[in-house]
Simulated scan of single mutants.
Amino acid sequence: SSIHRVHATEGNFNTSVGLPLTLLTLDDSHSISILELGANQPGDIEYLCTIVEPTHGIITNIAPAHLEGFGSVEAIAKSKSVLFNSLENGIAFVNTADERIVDFQIPGEKVTFGLSSDSDFPADIHQENDGTLTLILDTHVVATGTMNLSFVKNCIAVSSIAVTLGVKWEEIVGKIQSFTPPPGRCQVKQLVGITVIDDTYNANLVSSLAALDYLKAFSGNGRRIFVFGDMFELGETAPEQHVKVGEKCNEIKIDGVFTIGENAIHTDSAINGGIEHRHFSSPADLITSLKKNLHAGDKVLFKGSRGMAMERIIERVFEN
C-alpha cells in the first residue's frame, strides 16, 4: 500500500508457535499488521486473540475443515466467532454470503460485504465472453482478468477492508489486476503445451469444489482433467466429503479424474457418466499413468491436502 507499511503472516505461521514468531518481526516502522489465526480444535482462536489483541477482524467463511479436531461445523463456527467477540472496541468485517457468520453477535462496529444489495460493500460478478470475471463493487467496475471465482470473492472482502482503512479505489483496482497467485494457490502454468492449475497448497471440501469450478471455466480444445489427493482432518465425514467431490466432477462433466489416497478412492467410486477415472495407491503409479495419458492442450488441475505433497506429483510428471 502507498499509505501503509504492512506487516503480515507468511506461509502458515498461524498457530500458537508460528503467530508469536510472526509478531517478533513487527516493528515501529509498520502501520498495519495482517495476521492469520489458524485453528484445528476448539479454543485455538480464543488463545490466539489473547496474544494478538486484534482491532479489526474478518472471518471469510465457515467450512467443514479440520473436523477431526472440531467434531462438527457448528463447533467450528463457535470457535471462529470468538474473533468477533474480541472486537468490542474494534471493527468486524462480515461476509453476508455466509449465513452462519451473519448470525454471529457483533459487540463492536460492523462492516458488511457480499453479493447482496443491502451490504455496506455490495458486489456483483459478471462473466465475460472469454470466461474472465468482472467485479462490480460499490459502483466500481473491475476487469479482473481471471476466471477464478474464489479469488474474485476474496477481492470483495479485501476491498471492504482496504477502503475502510483509507486505501484509494485506484490503488485497490491496480492491485487486483496485477495480482499473481503464490505457488500452490490456483497458480496456472504452461508446461509442454499443457495447462497446469497448481492448487496443491491444501484442500478441504469447499476449496476443492471451488477449484473444480475454476477448471470448468477453462474453454477451448483439450481435455479437462482432475488429479486429486486425499483431504485430511475430516474425521468420520471423510468418505462422505470425498464422495461429494466425485459428484461435483460428474456435475461439471470433466473428461478425466485421477485419484490417490486412502479416502480419494471414495471420489473415484462416485464417478460416472462416461468420465475416464482411475485410482492409484502409490505416487509412482500415478506419475507413470499421467505421463502416458496427458497430451498437449489438456487442462489439468492438481489438488490435495498438504500432507499429500501433490506439488511433487507435478514436478515428477513434468521433469525433463
Rank of each mutant, 00 (worst) to 15 (best):
R5C: 09
H7P: 05
F13A: 15
L19F: 03
T25N: 14
I32T: 13
S33M: 07
E36A: 05
Q41F: 04
G43Q: 10
L48D: 00
C49N: 11
E53V: 06
H56M: 11
G57Q: 03
I59K: 02
N61V: 06
H66A: 04
H66G: 04
E74N: 13
K80Y: 03
L87S: 03
G108P: 02
G114L: 05
L115F: 12
S117G: 09
D118C: 08
T134M: 09
L135N: 08
L137S: 06
D138V: 01
T144H: 13
K153V: 00
I161D: 01
L165Y: 08
E170M: 05
V173Y: 04
Q177M: 11
P182H: 13
G184D: 07
C186F: 02
V188Y: 01
L191S: 09
I197T: 09
T200L: 07
S208E: 05
L209Q: 14
M231F: 09
M231T: 08
V245S: 03
V257S: 02
F258Y: 15
H266N: 15
A270P: 04
G273V: 02
I275D: 06
H279C: 08
F280T: 06
D285K: 13
S289F: 09
N293Y: 10
L294C: 10
G297A: 11
F302P: 00
G304D: 07
I314V: 11
V317N: 12
